[in-house]
């Protein structure tokens, strides 16, 4: 498991949700880094065989750390910074499309 080395400078905390549970994490970090520190070994399950995957390249190249951020699927956890109130879900299989009602709400806006 990834843990802070002693040398770490102190930064402000933000509150996020992962799979419905609330956590305080260091602000300015990526979703992937925050989840690794919280002990989430698996960030998603693959669409083809349902296998567990986690962050692999941490630089936006491999697309293995795809999670659902605030309802939007296929977000790269290593390229997304945590933000106060962010609602993260581990992605199970393929991306979920927005439901029609979500789209019409967007249009009405």
């Amino acid at each position: 498991m990834f843990k802070a080395i002693d040398d770490k400078g102190i930064k402000a905390l933000v509150s996020i949700k992962v799979d419905g549970n609330s956590y305080d994490v260091t602000g300015g970090e990526t979703v992937a880094s925050a989840m690794l520190q919280l002990g989430f070994n698996n960030l998603r399950n693959t669409p083809v065989k349902g296998k567990a995957r986690s962050a692999f390249c941490m630089m936006g190249v491999c697309f293995d750390c795809l999670v659902v951020v605030d309802g939007l699927s296929d977000q790269q956890a290593c390229m997304t910074a945590v933000q106060e109130g962010m609602d993260i879900k581990r992605q199970k299989g393929s991306a979920e499309l927005f439901s029609l009602s979500d789209i019409s709400r967007e249009v009405i806006k």
Binding site: F2, K3, I5, E29, S33, L36, Q37, M58, M59
Partner: peptide, 10 residues
């Protein structure tokens, strides 16, 4: 990258 940006290690 995790060491540089988050000061975390396994």
């Amino acid at each position: 990258i995790l060491l540089k940006t988050s000061a975390i290690a396994a």
